[in-house]
Structures are given as C-alpha cells and as structure tokens.
C-alpha cells in the first residue's frame, strides 16, 4: 500500500426520487481509498451500500459533496453475473467491446487480448464463442471480472461479487480477486453483507446503517473491538465466524 490516493469522497449526500418522494440515501459519507487497498463496505439491504458504490464510480450523479477519482478507468463487478453480461452477445464480443470503443479495430489483436484476459481470470479460449447463458455462475462471474479489467482499470468496485455463488465457487472467486490484485496492482471497494468474506479480503472496513457510516477502521480492530451496537449485532449474527 502506498499513500497515493485513488478515490476520495468528502461529506457526500445522495438522494433518490424526485419532488415529495425524494429520499436521502446517503448521509454525510466520507471515504479515502489508497492505492493497493481493499476497503470493505458492510451493511444490510437498504443500508445504502450499493448506492455508495454507484456514487463512488459515477453511476449515480445526484450527489452533493466532494468526489475525486484519480484513476482513468474504473469499473464495477455486480452480484448478478447474469444481468451484468449482455445476453445477446458472446463472451468474446463482451470482452472486446471496451477495446473497440477505444478505437482498436484489428480483429486478430482484439481476439488475442480477449483470450489473454480469459486466461488471466482462469478461463480458456473455448469460452470465447459462448453466450453468457451457456456458462455456469462461477464462469460468468469470471467473465464479468475479465470485462472489468480489460480496459486497464485500476479501481474495481465489487458489489456483492460472490453472494450469489455456492461456497466452493465463492472461495475460488475470492482467491482469484486477491491474486489479480497482487498481479495487476489493483484497488478494490468490496461491498458485502458477509462479514467473514469481508475479513478474508479487506484491509479496512466501513459499516453502514440507514445511509450512514456507523463505524470504520482496520478490519482486525473493528472485528475484535466493535464500538457501535449495530456492528456488534452483525458480528454476533454472522454464523460463519463462529
């Protein structure tokens, strides 16, 4: 980890809806992510953790406050790999699209880079021509990761990337994420409701509750000595930590 700051949010508020139905989803959130760091964001559904991810990366624009992103490309990996891969396209097409949009037209070179990226995430050339529906859940999530990396993103926001997977696949994908981080010098924001998974991969953790950050700090410090009631409740309920 270096001191180079990749992402900074300062006192961010975010809202949802218009007019009378307008609701505040994020309340006064500040966070700093350094290069090479993995920041875990924990909370239950409705806590605003996914909105925070979308704010950080610029998919939600209705925000107040400061937002500074110091990397050229950032990408997101979603929980539902079925929804995050275009069902009408092949794996190859999906991986090549970011390169095509950036002006690469040479078909051979496109294919070479796509296949190379497939191998990086533990897939084979034979997956190149498949449609997402012809892959297993684990394979699809690998393709999502490959698609997020191919344009050279250094910041990846992982929104519950393993929550929909079986436990053995979950372990494999987590290991892959950790390996990729080392090899490619990545930084992650890792969103999850599973404290055990967060512990395995994160350096720091932020606990969210009703749109607010109620606790944050070094993973070990928070897990060993939780301050906020909600954090204690979460840790207690987390069966897999027992």
């Amino acid at each position: 980890m270096t001191n180079e700051i990749i992402l900074h949010l300062g006192n961010v508020n975010s809202y949802y809806g218009r007019g009378k139905a307008r609701k505040q989803v994020l309340k006064n959130i500040s966070l700093t992510l350094h290069k090479g760091e993995v920041l875990g964001v924990v909370g239950e559904s409705g806590s605003g953790k996914s909105t925070l991810a979308k704010c950080a990366i610029g998919l939600v624009t209705d925000i107040e406050g400061e937002r500074k992103l110091n990397v050229e490309n950032s990408q997101m990996v979603f929980q539902d790999s079925y929804g995050s891969l275009n069902p009408a396209k092949t794996v190859g097409w999906i991986l090549e699209e970011p390169l095509r949009v950036r002006g690469l037209r040479d078909k051979k070179e496109l294919r070479r880079r796509a296949v190379e990226m497939l191998q990086t995430v533990g897939l084979e050339e034979e997956h190149y021509d498949r449609k997402p529906s012809q892959l297993s859940g684990g394979q699809r999530q690998r393709v999502s990761i490959a698609a997020s990396l191919i344009q050279g993103s250094k910041l990846i926001i992982l929104d519950e990337p393993v929550s929909a997977l079986d436990v053995t696949l979950q372990a494999q994908i987590l290991q892959l994420l950790v390996d990729l981080k080392e090899r490619l010098d990545l930084s992650y924001i890792f969103i999850s409701h599973d404290l055990a998974v967060v512990y395995q991969i994160c350096d720091r953790v932020m606990v969210m509750y009703h749109g607010e950050v109620v606790e944050q700090g070094d993973v070990d410090a928070v897990y060993d000595n939780p301050q906020h009631e909600y954090t204690k409740k979460l840790l207690e309920a987390s069966l897999s930590l027992g």
Partner: peptide, 17 residues
C-alpha cells in the same frame, strides 16, 4: 437499468451505441 448497460456506461460506450 440492467447491469450490463451500467458496465457499458462505465466503459465509456457512447449512448447511441
């Protein structure tokens, strides 16, 4: 609002594309 459209936006794919 599907995630693959979100990913395309983040990749910088132009809206008409």
């Amino acid at each position: 609002d599907r995630d693959f459209v979100n990913m395309a936006k983040l990749t910088g794919v132009p809206p008409l594309r």
